[in-house]
Amino acid sequence: MIKQLFTSAVLAGLVAGIFAAALQLILVVPLLIEGETFEQGLVLHFTLSENGAIETPVGHPSIMAQLPRHFGTLAMNMVAYTGFAFLLVVGFGIAQRAGHKIDGRAGLVWGLAGFIAVHLAPSVGLAPELPGTITADLVARQTWWLGTVLATIAGLASIAFLRAPWGAVTGIALFVAPHVLGAPTIDTYYGVAPPELASQFAARALAVAAASWAVLGAAAGWLWCRSA
């Protein structure tokens, strides 16, 4: 099984990491760099323009201006997605030992479940942040994020593998619990960037993560059943 675990995790992780970085560079990073111009005060939102109108022109900076920076994004996506891949194949290994079949199609479902647990569920409390967003204490957010990811994974596993109706009841309770507890937030808005930019950033970050996890899961599942 060790060969299966490593072949599947490393290859699928690298492919998904490159895919994620490419999509981020096209869809997300230009918004992120534009957000930094507001964070640094290079551009101000909601100031009077020369003709007296309150407006801020759209200006996504080209990603070509800071090329070396994006190699970091590529490398760290490969690291992060390989990390996700290792945890995904841990799930494959446990499921296979319990008698479940893993292939590309099953892997796709596992991948989408990973997206739900790692991105979609935590984003309800902690939305993807444009640079310059002022938020609650870092350790409190990291703790809530990790707890939410773990609870959602446990919830998905309960629904998938425990007998109905208790599996579903336990699963839903686990999904809801972190949100009832509540994410750490602050009671003031500090945003300096236009809301259109921040919302587009958050939506695209989630969409790119969904696509990347789909690739990760399908590739890992496909490699898993071929490296047995």
């Binding site: 994620a20 970091g72 994004t73 935590p122 902690l126 870092l138 990291q142 970050a205 989630l206």
Partner: peptide
């Protein structure tokens, strides 16, 4: 994931900055 998402060491944080925002690691 600890290296990719959470280590705060300055050099690593800067390299990982855009990825961490895009993945929404806190």
């Amino acid at each position: 994931l600890f290296v990719g998402g959470f280590v705060q060491a300055s050099a690593l944080h800067d390299v990982a900055h855009d990825q961490r925002h895009a993945i929404a690691f806190p």
